[in-house]
Amino acid sequence: MSVDFSVGLYGLIAIAATAMVITRARPVHALLYMVVALLALACLFDSLGAPFAAMLDVIVYAGAIMVLFVFVVMMINLGQPDETRERSWITPSNWFGPSVLAALLLTTLIFALGHGDAATGPNITEVGPTAVGMSLFGPYMLTVELASFLLLAGLVSAFHIGRALGEKR
């Protein structure tokens, strides 16, 4: 039962932090809450028996991607006027429609989960990095290649956009 408790705890932390992320007016605050949410998710992954995924989450997501976001925020220097404008955008009337839509989606998804046959008894064993690595470079070889292509494409496009930026300046 204590294990269930840990999953629920990590989940609650992640949900609360995420809720803070989407409601913050300052980007830096939002990003820090996002790091908290990601760390909580990493713990959740670990307790679900996926330590490799947990480590990757910490290193790549919280470590690299979030730092990238922080860098961008620093570069474009969103200051006080942006914050007030940001607050004027976050009004209840703006919140209402999307919240209803998201709530509908949530309801249907939970309803679907409740009716699925996946929720059987807890019997979790750890799936370690070795197993993941074996299947990555075994049956999922093509997926790895695709991922590398995708990264290359992202690299090229980011480089292109950034280069045009430099020339313009």
Partner: peptide, 16 residues
């Protein structure tokens, strides 16, 4: 994005 989400809701409702 909102339309995509609405479409997803409808598709899920139909699927369940």
């Amino acid at each position: 994005a909102g339309w995509i989400a609405a479409g997803t809701v409808i598709a899920l409702c139909l699927a369940i």
